[in-house]
Design a protein around this nucleic acid. Structure first.
Length: 470
RNA sequence: GCGCCCUUCGUCUAUCGGUUAGGACUCAAGAUUUUCAAUCUUGCAAGAGGGGUUCGACUCCCCUAGGGCGCGCCA
């Protein structure tokens, strides 16, 4: 194999569902490796299953990739469009005697497997048509083309993550290459496409490790170059079992709706199965510089929202206020029912952002915490705020109001007046600040209250406070 | 059933034969504080079990157990 060829990577999802978290990580690893090496990252949609592939799923995958910032090179390849080429290779193998026609019907094969199961034997095609003379076939009967796979020796997958994985050829049966309707199977299509696309590295889920051996058999029959394999362990749910929807096996766009930032997702997914010493916070630029196959772990990882939250909070704090304000507004607009912010709400959101972004783990939390900025008028109080606005609390507000309103309406000037009031009244600052916060935000927690008063303006603030001076 | 893979704190992981087994998340306590966060400090917490190899094993080998993946004319 040529050593100085630029690496060519690919992500090859099948559009039978959304882009889930495992697929997203696979895509990320391929993308990082390509960007790290200066190679190419291609996208191939494996839509050979006409029954289950949908345009919606294709759209969801493309959107998910774009949201995650995983840009791919060249044109997207649609596998189904290449079925003629796949058939050509199957015919070639047939002509070379490396494949053969099998006339066994699906029912017949089902019976065969049922029997094998009953006898406790391994489930595999028994090669019943492997050495039969084609003339024995019922004329005009449908057939599939199967690979005439080696029956002795072993097939070794030299995997950069898993090491050398050996499969005895006797355990690998003659796989179907071309279905009776003339369409290619996944095994054939993958091999042919990877070859035609000049794929040098195949990074994919470990659920494909067994497939690698079978694909290698096809590659050997064709005498094509072998790509570098790296089978990445799967992601499990918190209980160690299969990732379920409530565990995080969601479409990537669900993460967007939950308020996660793409850079946080990238960082989290990267650390799930890959490491660089003790590094935890890894920017995408740094990830590209550091990413390699050697440091991919061999054991499956569990998905943990707590850690994702922590990372997300970090990235939110480090994101520009304008970007955040825009994202929050967009998020609100996508909610059911949609909530549209007017210009005043947007400018308040932006102005309050420094305080808001310190306190949110997700954009949804942020949007929620900021809801007192979206509309004017007195606030409805939550349970805690109602307690703070007891008769005593309201009495304090009533006494404070006149002096509060007289003077500059900047955060520091307001704070100065409130501190002075507290001192003169023999109150602790918190005893005054909490009622203000409750009246102005309807809650007992918020960004620094004087900042929020400044954001809302004197008139709106007074209006809200005076609503609770009785 | 057959094949393959995996196994360090609750979770993500570091360690590439010699360490008081490190970091991060979570949790707890403290500092700070107008609330809540953030931040800082401290603490709890790990090599599945059993055999080898070796002067010495978390690290190498074998077995067992547990978990995962695959075994389609799905991908």
């Amino acid at each position: 194999m040529t050593q100085n060829k630029q690496p060519v990577l690919r992500f090859a999802p099948s559009p039978t569902g959304y882009l889930h978290i495992g697929g997203a990580r696979t895509a990320l690893f391929n993308w990082l490796y390509a960007r790290h090496t200066g190679g190419k990252f291609l996208l191939r949609i494996e839509d050979t299953d006409r029954e289950r592939s949908t345009p919606e799923a294709v759209a969801a995958i493309l959107e998910g990739m774009e949201w995650l910032g995983l840009n791919w090179d060249d044109q997207t390849v649609y596998q189904f469009a290449r079925s003629g080429r796949h058939r050509e290779i199957a015919e070639q193998l047939l002509a070379e005697g490396k494949a053969y026609r099998c006339y066994a019907t699906p029912q017949e094969l089902e019976e065969m497997r049922a029997e094998q199961r009953a006898e406790g034997k391994p489930l595999r095609y028994d090669g019943r048509w492997r050495d039969r003379n084609p003339s024995e076939a019922p004329s005009g009967a449908p057939f599939v083309i199967r690979l005439r796979a080696p029956q002795t020796g072993e097939t070794i997958v030299h995997d950069r993550v898993q090491g050398d994985v050996r499969f005895a050829n006797e355990n690998l049966d003659d796989m179907v290459l071309l279905r009776s309707d003339g369409t290619p199977t996944y095994m054939l299509a993958v091999v042919v496409d990877d070859y035609d696309m000049d794929i040098t590295h195949v990074i994919r889920g470990a659920d494909h490790l067994n497939n690698a051996a079978r694909q290698l058999q096809i590659i050997h029959a064709l005498a094509w170059p072998i790509p570098v394999y790296a089978h990445v362990p799967l992601i499990h749910g918190p209980d160690g079992a299969k990732l379920s929807k409530r565990h995080g096996a969601l479409a990537v766009d669900a993460y967007r709706e939950m308020g996660y930032l793409p850079e946080a997702m990238r960082n989290y997914l990267l650390r799930l199965g890959w490491s660089h010493g003790d590094e935890e916070i890894i920017s995408t630029e740094q990830a590209i510089a550091w990413f390699n196959l050697e440091n991919i772990g061999r054991s499956p990882a569990r998905f943990d929202f707590k850690k994702l939250d922590n990372l997300n909070a970090h990235y939110i704090r480090n994101t520009d206020d304008r970007v955040l304000a825009r994202e929050v507004a967009a998020l609100l607009g996508r909610m059911q029912p949609p909530r549209h912010l007017d210009d005043r709400a947007r400018s308040r959101l932006l102005a309050a952002m420094p305080g808001l972004k310190e306190r949110a783990k997700t954009l949804v939390e942020l949007a929620d915490a900021a809801d007192f900025l979206y509309t004017d008028g007195p606030r409805a109080l939550d349970v805690q705020a109602a307690k703070v606005l007891s008769p005593q609390g309201r009495e304090i507000l009533a006494r404070l109001a006149p002096s509060l309103e007289a003077g500059d309406w900047t955060s520091s000037a307001i704070e100065q007046r409130v501190r002075q009031f507290a001192e003169e009244s023999g109150l602790k600052l918190g005893q005054v600040a909490q009622p203000i916060r409750a009246a102005v935000t309807g809650k007992t927690t918020s960004p620094p209250v004087f900042d929020m008063l400044a954001v809302l303006g004197q008139q709106e603030s007074s209006n809200r406070i005076r609503a609770y001076t009785q």
